[in-house]
Amino acid sequence: MFTATRVIIAATAVALLAGCASQNPYDNQGQAQGSSGMSKTAKYGGLGALAGAVAGAAIDHNNRGKGALIGAAVVGAGAAGYGYYADKQEAALRASMANTGVQVQREGDQIKLIMPGNITFATDSSAIAPSFYSPLNNLANSFKQFSQNSIEIVGYTDSTGSRQHNMDLSQARAQSVATYLTSQGVDGSHLSVRGAGPDQPIASNADANGRAQNRRVEVNLKPIPGQQYPQQ
């Protein structure tokens, strides 16, 4: 019979193995690494395995040791698979968005693209600006290559004007991005749009520079629930 200590030790070992199961082809690229040098594939696989171990132990009350190991193996493998997939996608996005003004950020298992107002839309308009087509074309090509994400497009404004107008404008801008991406062959079933208006500012609205930063479009990429992601 497994003791509680043995369950923890065994689950930790499985977590480490799950996290290291896949060789990450971007191990030497800084954008796919954590600050410790561990690839995100390994980190997310290991964390997922530990979470799975806890869940597995809770589910199998009659044999907590066995449940922990099964939970660690199953959940850890899935997390490692998405980590590997996201590592590759992040590297490809950074390459395609270089020198476009679009920021690529990695936050846990989510990839975020921040598209500033100076390249996206004219003031008080939801018509795509000429400078925005090149980044959007690059994004569409990436989404057709990496098609196993849910894609949330969120529009934001500064605080100038009425809240209702800003909510409507931000929704229209997000929809314009989604419409263009689908016209370029991106699977519309994976897309969702939302207008956040002046909410969640990333800079102060008290000056022109801050307001310009707040006028933006963000694209959030997340794993699709239930999707199986290859580990290599």
Rank of each mutant, 00 (worst) to 15 (best):
A10D: 08
T12Q: 05
A15P: 02
L16V: 10
Q23S: 13
N24H: 02
D27P: 01
N28K: 14
Q29H: 10
G34Q: 14
S39D: 15
K40H: 15
G45D: 09
G45T: 04
G48A: 11
G48P: 11
L50P: 06
G52A: 13
A55Q: 08
A58G: 09
N62I: 01
R64V: 07
K66V: 08
V74K: 01
G78K: 11
Y85S: 09
K88F: 06
E90N: 15
A91N: 12
A92L: 07
A98P: 01
V102Q: 02
Q103C: 00
K112P: 03
G117C: 06
T120K: 11
A129R: 12
N137I: 08
N141R: 09
F143W: 12
S162L: 01
R163S: 09
M167R: 08
V177S: 03
V177T: 11
T179W: 00
D187F: 00
D187M: 01
H190K: 15
H190W: 03
G197Y: 04
G197E: 04
N205A: 06
D207M: 11
A208Y: 03
R211T: 05
R211M: 07
A212C: 01
N214W: 05
E218H: 04
V219M: 03
L221A: 09
P223Y: 08
Q228S: 15
